[in-house]
Simulated assay, not measured.
Amino acid sequence: MLDVRSMSFHDRHALIVPPTSFRIAAGELVFLEIPTPAGRTAASLILSGRMAPEDGELLLDDEPGLRARRRAAAVVDAEGITSPEHFMSVRRVVAESLGLRPLRARLPHRRDRIPSSPRAWMQAHDWSGVAGDHVDALPAPERIELLTLLAFADPQVRLAVLDSPDRHDLTGETLEDTLAALVDEESATSLIAVVDRAPAGTDHRVVSAGEPPVECPQDPEDPDDADADDADDADAPAPENAPTPDSDPGSTTDDTTHDSPAEDR
């Protein structure tokens, strides 16, 4: 789906996104670790196509186009950019998000019918009971779920990039369970969580910015094949004039004598 190759970015003073490479497939959850808030936001904007990297490239379905990635990816809950205002109600957040969806789109990867009205969408996703609540009053898992589902409500969006979801004081297990429930192999929706530190012991892939990607180790040699090779080596005849274990490596089987340099003098 998305192939990230040596993505990096500087701000005015420092390298905030060191060269980072990884791949994410359809229906996969990946944690991307970046230690600074500025680096996490910059990476989220780059991954979602809102900003170009300073160096490196990103390929969506093997295509480098920025516009296609912008349509297929959404940056979710980036503070001060896409995060909802604290005074907004759930109903208003839903209405504004659905209002930004394109009227027409070709959607080979999405077969479901998504309600277009805020009321119908909230009823379909069981959000009607909190429609009048402020979005900031929602528990952190519910806030993340709401905003991510709204991102996927745009039928073109296949990848959601969450900017610092761990800033909401979620424990590692709760964060992982919340995010894992939002990816779907059947509808080919994927998620990148850009975090300070991934949950300990997570079953999902973790990428640390600036570190080389982990390569799958090669299959170890079959012990039976190795034993067979050793047996073949043992049965093979020794080369001609090869020294035996008891012989002096410096000795020779040639009976011809040679005059020493001293005798020549």
Rank of each mutant, 00 (worst) to 15 (best):
D62Y: 01
E142W: 05
P108S: 07
V76P: 04
D230L: 15
G39N: 08
R5I: 14
G49Q: 04
R111E: 13
T171G: 15
P220N: 05
A238K: 11
E240T: 12
L107Q: 14
L159F: 02
P245H: 09
Q156P: 00
A262W: 10
D154A: 04
E173F: 06
A137E: 06
S6P: 00
A105Y: 00
A234Q: 10
A262H: 09
M7F: 14
L29Q: 03
V194K: 03
A105D: 06
P108N: 04
D3R: 14
V4Y: 04
H13W: 10
D11R: 05
R101M: 02
R91K: 06
S187E: 13
A209Y: 03
S247K: 00
D55F: 09
E240Q: 11
A68Y: 07
H13M: 07
G49P: 01
A198Y: 05
G39C: 06
L60E: 00
E33W: 01
V93N: 03
L146V: 07
T174Y: 00
S117D: 08
D3S: 10
D3V: 10
P239L: 12
E211I: 02
P64K: 02
M88E: 12
E28V: 03
T36H: 10
P84W: 00
D196H: 14
T257I: 12
D254C: 12
V161W: 04
D246H: 13
A209P: 08
R113S: 10
E63W: 05
A74F: 10
T244D: 11
D177Q: 15
